[in-house]
Computed example of a mutant assay.
Amino acid sequence: MNTVNKLYAKALSQYAERAGLAISPTLLKMVDQQSRLPLALLDQLWDACCQTSKDPLVGLRIGLELQPGHLDSAGLLLMTCTTLGEALEQLTEVAPIVGGGGDFTLVRQKAGKAAVHYQPRLAKRQAERVEAALAAILNLGRWASGDSFTASEFRFMHEPLASRENYSRLLGVKACFQSESNALVFSEEQLALPLVQANNSLHTYLRHLTDRTLAELGCQSLSAETQRLIERYPRWGKDRIAVEMSLSGRHLNRKLAEEGYSFKSLRDSTLHRLALERLQGQDKLVDIADALGFSDESAFAKAFRRWTGTSPAKLRRRLSDEDNHSPSALDEGAN
C-alpha cells in the first residue's frame, strides 16, 4: 500500500527539470529504476523539489500541471467516465494505483454543495503535497469537462505558505486555511457535468485493468479495506467499521481470520503507523491522541509504549535529533 506509481513520481522530476531545480542525479536514478516507488523515496523527491525551489507554492504548481497519464491506468479510467460525479466516485476507489499517500472522499454537503476531501498519510512536506493533490483535482476536473468545472473554494488544514493573493492569483479560486479538513468545494450540480472523453467500452476495459491492478496491490482484500476505514475513521470500533462494510462485528472477525488477521491487530498496526507519521509533524501529543481516537494523552502513551517500548515524546525527540544531526539515507548512499 505504501508505494507510488512511477509515472506520478516522473511528474515531479519533469517539473523539476522544466523549472531548473537542482535535484540529485542519484535520487533521479533511484526514481527511474523502479516501476513502483516506496513512499519514503517519493518523500525524498518532494523534499528535494521544495528545498531547491524558491517558490513556496511549488506544490500547487505541480498539481496544476498534472496530466491524466501521470495517474497511469487510473487517470485514463477517470477520463472515460460519463460524468464528473462518476469520475470522482471512482477516484476514491482507484487512488491507491497512483500511490498510498492518502485517501480521497467525495462528500455531498448541505446547501447544494459537494466536496472532495483528502486525508494525507505523509511524513514530509505535507502542506505542499496536500496542495498538489487538491490542485490536481481542480486541474483534471477542468480538463475532463472541457473547462466547464468550477470550484468555489479550497480548504486547507495548514497555514498559508504564501500570501492569500498569490493563492487566488494562481488558482482562480478562494483558499481558506486552518480548516477542519483538506477539501475542494464546488456546487453539487457540477457532479452531472459530462466528460468530453466519455467512452463506455473503453471505460469497461480500463475498469477491468484497474481492478486487476488493485488486486495485485492487495487493495481489494477485506483486511486492506478494514485498514483503509480505520485510517479514515480512527475513532470507530469494530462494530461501527463492520456496519460500514455491511457486516456484523462477529462476521468481520471471522472473515479477517480467514485472511490471517484480527481486527485488533489491524487497528493496532494502523494506529501505530499513523502515530509514527504524525509524530514527525508539529502536532501536539494531545492533539495526536485525539485524532487517533484515544480518550486522552495518557491512553495514547500507554498504547504507544506497547507498540514500540518507548513513549511518543521520547521517540519524537529521537526523530528530531536524527533529522538535525544524521545524514540522509541518500547522502549515505552517495558517499
Rank of each mutant, 00 (worst) to 15 (best):
Q280A: 14
G309H: 02
T213H: 06
L39N: 07
D72H: 11
P38L: 06
L77T: 08
L191A: 06
S328K: 04
A111L: 04
L42Y: 01
R18V: 15
R108N: 11
L41S: 12
W46S: 06
G260K: 15
S320N: 12
T92A: 13
A291P: 00
S179W: 03
E93A: 03
R108F: 01
M245F: 03
L37H: 09
Q220R: 13
G101A: 14
A115I: 11
P160L: 07
L319A: 04
R316C: 13
I241D: 08
L78W: 12
L37P: 11
E231M: 14
A40E: 15
M79C: 05
L41C: 09
G218H: 08
Q190H: 13
A48E: 05
Q67L: 03
S201Q: 15
H272A: 03
E65A: 15
A215L: 03
A289L: 03
F104V: 00
L170V: 14
P194H: 10
T204A: 11
T226E: 05
E277P: 02
Q282D: 10
G333Q: 09
Q197G: 01
L122D: 01
E244R: 09
C81G: 03
V107L: 10
L319H: 00
E277D: 07
K174H: 07
E131G: 11
A183S: 13
R36M: 01
G85C: 02
E17H: 08
Q282M: 02
G112W: 02
E153Y: 03
L184C: 07
D72N: 05
Q280D: 14
Q126A: 06
S24I: 09
T308N: 03
R316L: 13
S311P: 14
A22I: 06
L184S: 06
G63S: 15
G59E: 05
T213P: 01
V286C: 06
A192P: 00
P312N: 10
F186I: 06
A334N: 05
A114R: 05
N200K: 15
G85M: 00
S328W: 04
D103W: 13
A224N: 06
N166P: 04
A127E: 05
G101Y: 15
A115V: 14
C50D: 01
E259Y: 10
L27M: 03
E180H: 12
S24F: 04
A11E: 07
Q34L: 09
L252P: 13
S148P: 00
N253V: 00
A275W: 08
G249D: 07
C49T: 15
Q14M: 12
D147E: 15
L57S: 11
T308C: 06
Q280I: 09
G309R: 00
G218L: 02
N182H: 04
G293S: 06
Q282R: 12
P312Q: 08
A136V: 05
L57P: 00
A329W: 04
E128D: 10
A198I: 03
P38C: 12
G59A: 12
L229N: 10
S145A: 11
D268N: 11
D268E: 11
W46Y: 09
D147F: 15
T204I: 11
L140C: 04
Q119S: 15
K238Q: 14
P56T: 13
Y261V: 00
F304N: 01
